[in-house]
Design a protein around this nucleic acid. Structure first.
Lengths: 354, 354
DNA sequence: TTAGGTTTTGGAAACGTTTCCAAGGCCGCG
DNA sequence: CGCGGCCTTGGAAACGTTTCCAAAACCTAA
């Protein structure tokens, strides 16, 4: 092939064609190419066409890194999720994405796979890359380090917390776990249960803390004592871990174990059911089960599982809306949305066996 | 007014503290700050400390956009997923992330929510931001536009396709759907079924195409005719859509409907089960069910659902390994890994009713 | 003590854009 | 015919880094 002198400039620099190559090829200034590409109206049709031809011919595509640097903005928001395997997360994402992409933002995601280190890495990536906003369901909202980063609002971008809390006020969308747990206890106590167990994820995020607090307060309010043996924490909240816990519970004599179990969200349900099935334990005759998040598994299991439900897409949507506001008016007063929780009665709750 | 010379530089530019502010404060050159921050060994302890103090005092954090631009690399790989709600996706991600982060790469994700436009937007974002590699489970692998983009390897970065195919050879990890579907048919035909239905997602990705092809070929090889009425496509593959389909099937008289159904992956199973439960259809007495991907729902449903299983984490891992290789040796011959599929027998397949 | 070498440091040039500013062309109107 | 104003275009200065290069400082050995 003849080394076309026209292509020389392109070949020089690592084979990557940049805006200057387009400009040279079209015989115009770099700034004109930029104007065409950004839809600036003050451009002659003839010039526009020449530029477009050159773009086409060279297969040019803009380097957004340069563009981001110059503009100082990215039209992108970052989402950090603690547990990508949580069945709810997809819906949160759906809700957020619909709202944000309608507003012209791209949504990118990082998982922090359950560790504070993962949180930090994701935060560093997103902030350092200058996303315009952040939606955070961190693995650990108790760390002093990121509280500091959050406080230094000056170097940062607008942030909305998803069911997480920080020592300082902050945009957030919070599920009403207190209400949910109370409904759960009403249901179980109403059915006659006195010994109620609770399986939770870690306490380093709000759902775990809020559920535990509401559980203990709710029991006491009903004149019952929370039994520490029957409250288990799972860090991280894996199915295998939950299976072990439930298997342990089922090994106890029936009179000395909870007659009802409340299972927290995430993958705990999967593990709990494995143990239940393995032990041949019948629901609700031998044990009542109530799960803290409604999923297809809870709905379609036979018997159907009584569950707490919230508008998960709504969580994502509310988070996105709060974030859009915050990006529009950066200095504004922190606001928070509260998502109600309702109980869905199915067949897994019945009177206690004993 | 006397602007404090010390703070002048910082205040001047939008309140954001940059490397030059650090340099000024520490009384050293910008390049020295950079060296300290990047762990360059040729740096006096004294200088290092002064820089670190300034960093601390100013709360400086590096702007990775500038860094990316200069370096031309990001230590980041992008993942594009067609359907974030697919239960398998989390495990793929897990496998990929473990391998890639061990190699020092950050993993970021975008969903293309089932549309070719989403694919294009995600690709534009990632390539434009100069990720070092791409793991793609696109919504539509049939588009000529992105084939072209793929072919222009010169402007792009290494790419690994996840169960997608392109007209030109390309790194990829492919599930052996032919083998899986064959095992499924063996199972069903072996149980005595002659009228077998198939619910699939869209044909614009490989799993749909491969399953359909294998289904038709497999039936013919067994002397059976695929009945077009019993093969349904779902674009996109939502649970609601699948529920409608299954409800329609169940409205037919028993003699005129499939005695066994094969349900594709994603959210189709959820919808199918809803319809089955609503109709009070007993498995496997009134219908046999076989599902193309093994999930907690398939496992824990009663009766347990016979399913096709593959090492999903392994898919992510294999993709990541291929990508690491490709990033190390960009020009190398495209390679592909094949993931076997096995059948997991549970209780949802039995002899036909009729 | 000086020459030669090795570290350590500073200065400046990139990286690829966007955008400001000024100059040039063109138009219409006086 | 000339002049003011608009539209279009080109040039150059940012944006915040990293890294190359050269100068300075230090050390060792002759």
């Amino acid at each position: 092939m003849e080394p076309d002198p026209e292509r020389k400039g392109e070949a020089v620099r690592g084979g990557r064609v940049g805006i200057r190559d387009v400009a040279r090829r079209a015989g115009v200034a770099i700034s004109s190419v930029s104007r065409v590409l950004n839809g600036n109206p003050n451009v002659t049709p003839a010039l526009r066409q020449r530029v477009l031809e050159a773009v086409e011919a060279l297969g040019y595509q803009v380097n957004l890194v340069g563009s981001d640097l110059r503009r100082g903005t990215t039209r992108t928001v970052g989402v950090v999720i603690d547990d990508i395997a949580n069945p709810l997360f997809a819906e949160i994402m759906l809700g957020a994405e619909a709202t944000l992409s309608a507003a012209g933002y791209l949504v990118t995601l990082m998982s922090s796979h359950g560790t504070a280190r993962g949180d930090a890495a994701a935060l560093r990536h997103f902030r350092g890359r200058r996303v315009d906003g952040l939606l955070l369901a961190l693995s650990d909202d108790t760390g002093a380090d990121w509280h500091a980063a959050l406080a230094a609002g000056d170097g940062g971008c607008p942030v909305v917390l998803l069911d997480r809390e920080a020592p300082l006020p902050c945009h957030s969308v919070l599920s009403d776990h207190a209400q949910g747990m109370d409904a759960a206890l009403t249901e179980l106590v109403g059915a006659g249960h006195r010994r109620i167990g609770l399986m939770l994820g870690p306490l380093c995020t709000r759902p775990g803390r809020a559920r535990l607090r509401a559980f203990e307060a709710g029991l006491r309010a009903r004149g019952l004592n929370p039994d520490a043996r029957f409250v288990t924490l799972h860090t991280p909240a894996t199915a295998a871990d939950a299976e072990r816990t439930m298997a342990g519970v089922l090994r106890r004599p029936a009179a000395d174990r909870p007659s009802a179990m409340i299972v927290g969200g995430g993958q705990l349900l999967t593990g709990a059911l494995r143990a239940l099935h393995a032990a041949g334990c019948r629901l609700p005759e031998e044990m009542s089960l109530l799960v803290c998040d409604d999923t297809p598994l809870a709905e379609l299991h036979r018997p159907g599982l009584t569950a707490l439900r919230r508008d998960v897409i709504g969580i994502g949507r509310a988070g996105a809306e709060l974030l859009l506001e915050a990006m529009k008016a950066p200095g504004a007063e922190p606001r928070s949305a509260t998502i109600p929780i309702e109980i869905v009665r199915r067949a897994s709750v019945g009177p206690p066996a004993a």
